[in-house]
């Protein structure tokens, strides 16, 4: 029997795979680990609830001022999304940025040295978290709205679409933020960049520069069109959201390629 074969047998007995690991199996483990990382990081929850609490109060106040007759669940979900998206972007930036800041990225890569898969797992985790959080928040806003008006929740197809749209938008925004944070490797830088991406450039800078049509292709504006078609005058909601997806994919690929080349 050859020496090589003996080595393989011994490895099999010891239950140790020497090389290769199916992508899906490893990705599943990594997503599970990233979820543990996310749910056990206090800053993530403080950041989120720091945005969620005032948003809830604002929605309740608006609903009470409008009174029972003026029910518009879509408008309130949209208003909450416009406020919460920044909170969620901060969560994503903190989630990844602190890993670089505290040096825990070393431990991550010692446990999972195939870096493209690490980036994919982080993006997938934040995307799943974003979808769940978006849907939960939208439903919560509908309930707050109904409670503030003293009526039963009004849920029609348009509201359902807005609820799912909020989940889809935060889902992609999560992957986008993770990619930005990996590119910048810094929490503060990632937070400031996301503030610019979410608010400053589309709301202030682009119109001031006289390029309104360009903002239709801006990632967050393109993504929001899926929830609020009125924000995008140029493209249909589905096409607009596809643009957001495509841009996020490009950023994620750039982040992964850069991260894969860098020393940590």
């Amino acid at each position: 029997m050859s020496e090589n074969l003996e080595i393989s047998e011994s490895d099999e007995v010891a239950g140790r795979a020497v090389t290769g690991k199916p992508l899906w199996s490893e990705l599943g483990n990594l997503v599970r680990a990233e979820w543990i990382r996310l749910r056990t990081q206090r800053a993530v929850w403080w950041s989120f609830f720091g945005f969620m609490a005032p948003t809830t109060v604002l929605i309740a106040v608006v609903a009470m001022q409008q009174g029972p007759a003026a029910t518009d669940g879509v408008a309130l979900i949209t208003l909450s999304l416009l406020l919460l998206q920044l909170g969620f972007a901060v969560v994503g930036a903190v989630f990844v940025g602190t890993e670089f800041g505290h040096g825990t990225m070393h431990g991550t890569l010692l446990a999972a040295p195939r870096r493209h898969r690490v980036v994919a797992a982080k993006c997938v985790t934040m995307a799943i978290f974003g979808f769940g959080l978006g849907v939960f928040s939208a439903v919560f806003i509908v309930l707050v709205d109904a409670a503030a008006r003293g009526q039963a929740p009004a849920v029609d197809l348009k509201v359902m679409r807005t609820i799912l749209g909020m989940g889809a938008y935060l889902s992609v925004l999560g992957a986008f933020t993770v990619s930005v944070a990996i590119l910048l490797r810094n929490t503060i830088g990632a937070v400031l960049t996301m503030i610019a991406v979410v608010y400053v450039i589309p709301v202030a800078a682009a119109p001031l520069l006289g390029i309104p049509n360009l903002t239709d292709l801006w990632p967050t504006i393109a993504g929001l069109a899926f929830v609020v078609p009125e924000v995008n005058a140029t493209l249909s909601p589905v096409l607009s959201f596809s643009v957001f997806l495509f841009e996020t994919l490009i950023i994620a690929m750039a982040a992964s390629a850069y991260f894969n080349r860098r020393d940590v």
């Binding site: 140790r16 795979a17 020497v18 090389t19 290769g20 690991k21 010692l110 446990a111 999972a112 040295p113 195939r114």
Partner: peptide, 14 residues
């Protein structure tokens, strides 16, 4: 053990 670290299937077990 004859394998580059990046190619280890489950590095923590190796």
């Amino acid at each position: 053990n004859g394998v580059r670290y990046q190619e280890l299937a489950e590095p923590l077990r190796e």
